[in-house]
Amino acid sequence: MPETWDYTLQIPNDLRAVTVCRRTLRLILTLHGLTGLVEVAELLATELVSNAVRHTKGPAALRVRRSPEGMVWIGAWDTNPVPPDPPRALEQVGELEEGRGLGLVVACAEVWGWQPSARFGNTGKFVWCELVAA
């Protein structure tokens, strides 16, 4: 059975926090011997966290955990309880930066979703994805 772990990084509503999350995620995965996941995990976490910071006014959080089944779960929590817009296919987005986030998550993750979640005294949601940590 794989080693399990769970990290949560609370972040302010500041786009600079996206870089902090990306670097923290790289360190977590590297320390746990999952360097093969770093690039795709950083891409997905960047999309999830930047959406959380851009589309809300409150605090946010990055949560990363490894399940007993060997999956790496990456979630971004924000204070907006409204579901995310449905992802658009990457072909529909083209070279635009806007609107590609969840399309990248769908294309790169094994599974993704969202769920309502209250944290830090606020209602909100987690938008999450899972990667196989083979």
Rank of each mutant, 00 (worst) to 15 (best):
V18E: 01
R65Q: 15
L48M: 04
P68A: 15
T46K: 11
L43C: 10
N51R: 07
S50M: 04
A41E: 13
K57A: 12
A61W: 01
R54H: 07
L27I: 08
E47W: 02
L15G: 04
R54W: 01
N51K: 06
L31V: 03
A17P: 03
L44W: 11
A52Y: 03
L29T: 02
E42P: 00
N51Y: 03
C21Y: 02
E39I: 00
T56N: 00
L48P: 11
P12T: 11
T56L: 03
L31C: 04
R54T: 05
D14T: 05
P59T: 06
S67V: 09
L48R: 10
R66Q: 09
S50F: 01
P12Q: 06
V38N: 06
A41D: 10
V53A: 01
L29I: 00
V38Q: 12
D14M: 04
T19N: 11
L48H: 07
L44V: 14
L34T: 04
C21S: 06
P59I: 09
V49W: 00
L31P: 00
L29K: 01
A45F: 11
E47R: 07
K57F: 15
D14P: 06
E47S: 03
T46A: 15
R22K: 11
V38R: 09
A60G: 15
T46C: 15
L34N: 04
T19V: 15
R66M: 12
V18Q: 03
R22T: 09
E42M: 15
L43T: 13
R63F: 08
L44H: 08
L44Y: 04
A45P: 08
L25K: 07
A60S: 15
G36P: 05
A61R: 05
N51D: 04
E39A: 15
R63E: 14
V49C: 03
H32G: 04
R22I: 15
L43K: 12
T46Y: 08
V40G: 09
P12K: 04
T46Q: 10
A60H: 14
R54C: 02
T24A: 08
D14V: 04
H32T: 13
P12E: 13
T35V: 05
T30I: 02
L25H: 08
V20W: 04
R23E: 15
R26Y: 07
R65V: 12
E42G: 09
S67E: 15
L43D: 13
R63W: 13
R16Q: 09
N13G: 05
T30S: 13
H32P: 09
S50H: 06
R66S: 07
I28F: 02
P68G: 14
A45H: 12
L43S: 12
L44C: 10
N13P: 05
V40W: 05
P59F: 10
H55N: 14
R22L: 09
L25Q: 03
R63H: 14
T24K: 02
L15A: 13
H55C: 11
K57D: 13
D14S: 01
G36I: 02
V38T: 10
S67Y: 12
S67P: 11
H55G: 07
I28H: 03
K57W: 07
S50Y: 07
L27Y: 01
L27K: 05
L31F: 09
L43P: 02
